[in-house]
Design a protein around this nucleic acid. Structure first.
Lengths: 155, 155
DNA sequence: TCAGTAGCTTACCTCAAGGTAGGTACTTAC
DNA sequence: GTAAGTACCTACCTTGAGGTAAGCTACTGA
């Protein structure tokens, strides 16, 4: 979807990215699009789920609580187009479709899992930080100088 | 922002997450919010940029091409509240504000960098996969059985 | 005969993400 | 005298992400 309908005058500009390393700091670099797919709200969770093995559509839908059918389908299509997941359709009734990771998908997914694991493990620390943050806003700092809320330095 | 204005009847339900490990598969788990901040469009890039060292606001704005002042400020606030970045204000004219990672921020950012590095390195592979994908749609598959576009299995 | 099932697609609608632009306060450079 | 740099905040408006619901297929079981 994203790849195929670039206006022609952009094709040449894009061509260089197809061969070279991407640069996420560059606004026009297509790696931004890949990053968006991979770090999208549902993309992250789908990839991590698939890391545990092949899933059917309905299994994914149940596992990733809160996704709508529409968004799950959309997410899976984007990931399939980028070559991260394979879709296998069985011509049976009722329909059955299996999704699994490609080797490339496993590489990205493993990086993502490291991140999601960290977040799940350290959630209490984040909560503690948030609590500190609100208390710092209401209490105008302990004893010394410094005015309101935010930390200030005297350079 | 996110943390403080939960309705009271949710406080108790949230309290358990503050102590336990998070579960990203659960729709109501606040780890979803942390994930959103961290994997947000600009959050990712800001964290990776800060991994290279302290930056001022304007430096980040220039480095992360395409971000508006508004979104950069918003992103930084969210990351500050979650305890990933520190903000240091110097009372000078013209204003000067430095942003850097907390130890916690460095932990997440390093996981994110692994992901962004992978994407930048493997962009050509993704492009190749996309090209295969479109050609598979237009060409009704090489020699054997199978009908249109998508791969089918005879199970 | 009719409901139920799996995996979608489509149309419609809402809400939030995010862009644009203007204001602020002060200084330095032209 | 005025333009530009610096780090924002606020109001306004557009765009798109994403939710809801209905439809579709072709079969099975009640």
């Amino acid at each position: 979807m994203t790849a195929s309908k670039q206006p022609k005058h952009l094709r040449k500009a894009m061509a260089k990215w197809a061969e070279q390393r991407g640069d996420l700091y560059a606004a026009a670099c297509p790696s931004r699009g890949v990053l968006d797919h991979v770090t999208s709200r549902w993309g992250v969770l789908v990839l991590v789920a698939l890391l545990e093995g092949t899933h059917r559509f309905s299994e994914l839908r149940r596992k990733v609580a809160g996704v709508s059918e529409k968004m799950l389908a959309q997410t899976l299509h984007a990931l399939e187009e980028d070559g991260f997941v394979v879709r296998e359709v069985f011509p049976v009734i009722p329909p059955r479709v299996d999704y699994s990771l490609t080797p490339m998908g496993q590489e990205v997914a493993s990086h993502i899992e490291a991140l999601t694991d960290w977040i799940e493990d350290n959630l209490p620390r984040v909560f503690a930080a948030r609590a500190q943050h609100v208390s710092r806003k209401s209490a105008p700092e302990g004893g010394k100088a410094g005015r309101a809320g935010r930390r200030e330095s005297s350079a």
